[in-house]
Nucleic acid binder design. Structure first.
Lengths: 279, 279
DNA sequence: TCAATTATGGAATGTTTGTTCCATCAGTCA
DNA sequence: TGACTGATGGAACAAACATTCCATAATTGA
């Protein structure tokens, strides 16, 4: 025996070890490493024979793999995955208990922040599903499907939404222009829109004046403007062809974006489907 | 053999069964039942011999117990406990997978699309909450809180995330630079980062080569790089100081962004809180 | 291109594991 | 109290298991 050696005892260090040693490993062992990381649950319960089949290797390879990592054998390696599952289970249970008792989880700011944002997102998604009428989406989609080019307008916190829309439309093969206001040229970028185009404008309170202005200008010029905004009294809702309501839940001073993104993606894909159906 | 019999397949029904039949059971079998309910995790992993010792009975008693409950043997009973452990885990995984295969129906397209995106988002959020360890977030936050300037790197579908982070950091009074690759100058924008700065890099498969390259370069230069990516074998996870896992559900050809946004917002606010606490 | 080294597949092996069997024990009804 | 029914402990068993071994294939270095 050359060394007592110190194989990782917890899942985290095992992952780290695999990251560093992975690339240097022989083909089959690398295959095992990838399977392990992709299906950590199976590693905890299944036998060498079962895992070997789903990883596409021989059982003996699993043992060799464990030994290459300085474990005595496969069983020792498996303990790491079992420990991980145990811990996750107790974490999960503790979180549920904390939720049930109403108090916002003692351990650490990170946990309660994450919980807050997750809950805000979930609340927003539920509200969206309950509030939006599919017919409204269909109507907006009709306008978009007819457009030669779709202009995307949104600033500040809403810029991510329109930049994602630009990505999605691009991938769907729909011509779009992201009005990113670079060099302060937002107005000029949008001014080339005509009545045979369309515009998606996104803004919620506190409204960005320039977004409102660009949308209103396009609307006056007869461009079909679809607004994603937070209520009928929004200045954006007043200067557009059609508007869709997204009400996001706040957490702290930040607003969830989940519902707006879900709606935006729906619009994009629905438009693509409609164009395909019309053709 | 009197009956084919139907032993409980899930943990819940097993508990119910034990509650009703428990009092009528012989002494040793009752002893087993109590031990089982008190140490369900052990039941999933340990062998008959080990469990027998800690329950103070013979291994054969465990088999008898299982058979008294209409299981074929101890192994069948053990499956129930194993299923319980992997459930809250693969629960999420299964839901993510189920969504992946679901093609939007033709009729009422808008509704089913919206529903699909909403469900993908919700599944992603749940998976995030179940998987992420708050300690990992804290560790990442520590690096960020120390930074003079935080560089934000992400392209294509991930650009919305970093652009939102730029907005959030700005609002929180934390100095950040959005590496937007304008004019193809991404590398130069990021090259000015030093060891007293930090970087957040976001990329999931299919990875954007430039994002990987920028993050790896910064990492080589000693800049603390926090990666938001989709697995330990991601090229981004291999070239960073710390990485956080976000697994988003797909719907159609588009991926939810909900979990990534929730995590990004958590990072931003947690960093701000930490900075405020240190001051 | 050839030898040396390492990796791999598959059968053989020794151990561990769940299970069964049977003698003994405790409790129950006459 | 004494036969009977069911429960219990512990050893014996057979199946499943991780592991090892060896012949063969692939890879590496000269």
């Amino acid at each position: 025996m050359p060394q007592p050696a110190s194989p990782p005892g917890d899942f985290g260090s095992l992952v780290t070890l695999l990251q560093t040693r992975g690339p240097t490993l022989p083909k089959r062992l690398r295959q095992v490493a990838e399977h392990m990381l992709a299906h950590p649950d199976d590693m905890a319960f299944q036998t060498t024979a079962q895992i070997a089949v789903s990883a596409g290797v021989q059982p003996s390879t699993l043992v060799r793999f464990a030994q290459a990592l300085d474990y005595a054998g496969f069983s020792d390696l498996q303990q790491v995955f079992r420990a991980r599952l145990r811990q996750q289970n107790s974490d999960h249970r503790a979180r549920l208990a904390a939720l049930r008792s109403g108090r916002p989880a003692e351990d650490g700011m990170a946990r309660s922040l994450l919980e807050g944002f997750v809950r805000a997102s979930q609340a927003s998604l539920e509200a969206l599903q309950g509030r939006i009428q599919p017919a409204e989406i269909e109507a907006a989609t009709n306008l978009l499907a007819r457009a030669e080019t779709i202009f995307l307008v949104g600033s500040r916190r809403m810029f991510p939404v329109v930049s994602y829309l630009a990505y999605a439309f691009g991938k769907l093969g729909i011509r779009s222009i992201l009005v990113d206001n670079i060099g302060g040229l937002g107005g000029e970028q949008a001014a080339i829109a005509t009545t045979s185009d369309a515009m998606i404008a996104v803004s919620c309170a506190p409204y960005t004046p320039q977004t409102i202005e660009i949308a209103a200008q396009a609307h006056r010029n007869g461009v079909p403007v679809i607004a994603l905004t937070d209520g009928p009294l929004s200045p954006l809702a007043m200067h557009c062809r059609r508007w869709l309501e997204v009400s996001e839940a706040d957490f702290g001073e930040f607003r969830s974006m989940a519902a707006t993104f879900a709606l935006a993606m729906t619009l994009a894909v629905a438009t693509a489907e409609k164009i395909r159906a019309d053709a």
